[in-house]
Design a binder for these strands. Structure first.
Length: 492
RNA sequence: AGCGGUAUCGUCUAGUGGUUAGGACGGGAGAUUCUCAUUCUCCAAACAGGGGUUCAAUUCCCCUUACCGCCGCCA
């Protein structure tokens, strides 16, 4: 049995898209499950849209996701180079083979001529298929075009390849996820494999690379289905073994359009920047099309790989539901070991002076605030009242609350009694419990209201983390000063 | 227009020729908690439509509809 070799072949014309990440994941899973190799290839044949910045982003994102490749531009391998622009000397050789065997021919048509053909087709409501005008040019005619300064593009002769390798004009292949797929090759025009400037086209370069890199399974988005037929024909014309193909449904935005920035983040690096955990991202994206056999959706990549069967992937499109991703992210945040969480969160706490806080206090602060986080970045707002010393900004609801007579009563009593309290969390816990118990008993204040007064004065908000711990972390002085500042002299 | 693909709660999906069609997110109700959140319990929510085949179809076949993709000297 041949070795399983799969690849992800992103084009560096943008940051690594979440859809590409999903395709990469499925390739990775397939490789893992089958003890195969996962290969990264950079498809940068279109120099104008390509940049090193994007190449770096693709590397970094894939690494962050833990989708490590066995062969690639940086790590090398036996079938390099793994960057298309470094393979430009390879492509002409096989074009020549195709030319020699008659599966390709030179085309001297100008863009204007081609445009005219297309217009004609649309006018007649026909699908456009190249006319094959240049298929049988004589040497004299070619020489004449050359004399005019025209540079030929090379076209692949579809009908010739079809007749050479297939009985019928219907070309069929067995897709790993979609089952049997077919098309009438008469509908495929002779397409360009080498541009007049000498650069290979995508459909051609992909075949050469996949063949030379011994790719056994091509797993990609279903937008490539129609390319597959062309590619199969090239594989055959060159005498290469045709790999197996598997096409995944697309990821759509909630409004069923293409996922774009206006829906939120689309690049993996954007998600990370916003405070998503890569593990959550990966787990979520795996669930788009794949379902665990035991119904347990939270899974590590290794667990998913064990349970992964490419033919069981749903072949329909799926919608990217940010709500579920958020839920998953908060779930992953809760599962993170506290030490790791402390480190990851620091990135979002740069506006605060953490050096003024002991590690024990910092740890405790994170312990009591991390639970409600949806995004790591939510921590920024969640801890603001731990800083600022004697001052804290009150929001509208807190202000309103402070101004009630009940709250004033609570605060006056609090300041008076707390002055003598020993300021440790255990003791505060005990004292506060008794404190609100007393108010309940003596004045009928619900514990909730008693605590609201203190919370409003100390944190400036009506909701937040455990009040006892907040007081302990803030310290006696700051706590009492904040409370004192909220005691108003004239309240009716 | 043509060609190809897809169709189970709002969303991601499980599932079967005979099931109370299952789970998750989201939504609703309740319990717990000093608040918010968490957690827990419960509830509502789906087989696109029409024809066949069959004793029986959500499941198999056909048509319609809807949606997606492709029709580049882009990748």
């Amino acid at each position: 049995m041949n070795e399983v070799r799969v690849r992800i072949a992103p084009s560096p014309s943008g940051n690594l898209h979440i859809g590409t990440a999903r395709t990469a994941l499925f390739n990775y899973l397939f490789a893992k499950k089958n003890n195969g190799k996962f290969i990264l290839r950079i498809e940068d044949t279109d120099a104008e849209r390509t940049s090193q910045e994007y190449v770096d982003n693709i590397f970094d994102s894939l690494k962050a996701l833990g989708l490590n490749w066995d062969e690639g531009p940086d790590v090398g391998g036996d079938y390099g180079p793994y960057t298309q622009s470094e393979r430009f000397d390879i492509y002409p050789k096989y074009v020549q083979k195709l030319l020699d065997s008659g599966f390709a021919y030179e085309c001297f048509c100008t863009p204007e001529e081609l445009e005219a053909e297309k217009e004609e087709a649309t006018k007649n409501k026909q699908a456009y298929v190249y006319s094959k005008k240049c298929e049988n040019l004589t040497e004299e005619e070619k020489a004449k075009f050359r004399a005019e300064g025209r540079k030929p593009a090379i076209r692949f002769n579809v009908s010739k390849a079809q007749k050479a390798f297939h009985d019928s004009s219907i070309l069929e292949f067995d897709d790993l996820v979609k089952g049997k797929l077919h098309v009438d090759t008469n509908l495929i025009g002779d397409f360009v494999i080498m541009k007049s400037n000498g650069a290979p086209t995508y459909n051609y370069a992909v075949v050469i690379d996949d063949a030379l890199m011994k790719i056994s399974h091509v797993i990609r988005g279903e937008d490539h289905i129609s390319n597959t037929y062309k590619q199969i024909l090239i594989f055959e014309a060159l005498g290469f073994e045709v790999p197996k193909f598997g096409h995944l449904g697309m990821i759509l935005a909630p409004d069923r359009s293409k996922l774009s920035k206006r829906h939120g983040a689309t690049a993996v690096s954007d998600f990370v920047e916003q405070g998503y955990l890569t593990d959550a991202l990966l787990n979520f994206v795996a669930l788009l099309g794949w379902a665990p056999s035991d119904g347990q959706e939270i899974k590590t990549v290794d667990e998913i790989a064990q349970d992964f069967r490419i033919n069981e992937i749903s072949s329909s499109n799926s919608i990217f539901e940010y709500d579920k991703l958020k839920w998953m992210n908060s779930h992953y945040i809760k599962m993170l070991p506290i030490e790791e969480l402390k480190e990851k969160l620091k990135k979002y706490l740069t506006k605060y002076d953490l050096s003024s806080m002991t590690d024990a206090k910092y740890t405790r602060m994170i312990e009591i605030t991390y639970e409600p986080l949806t995004l790591l970045s939510d921590i920024t707002d969640a801890v603001t009242y731990f800083f600022g010393g004697d001052d804290v900004e009150l929001d509208e609801k807190a202000k309103e609350n402070i101004e009630t007579e009940l709250s004033q009563d609570v605060l006056r009593t609090f300041v008076e009694q707390a002055e003598t309290w020993e300021w440790t969390e255990e003791n505060l816990h005990e004292k506060l419990e008794k404190f609100r118990g007393d108010f309940k008993e003596q004045k009928g204040y619900k514990p909730k209201f008693t605590m609201w007064a203190i919370r409003a004065a100390i944190t400036g908000r009506l909701c937040g983390a455990d009040m006892t711990a907040i007081l302990a972390i803030l310290g006696k002085e700051h706590s009492l000063n904040r409370a004192k500042k909220c005691i108003l002299s004239n309240v009716k």
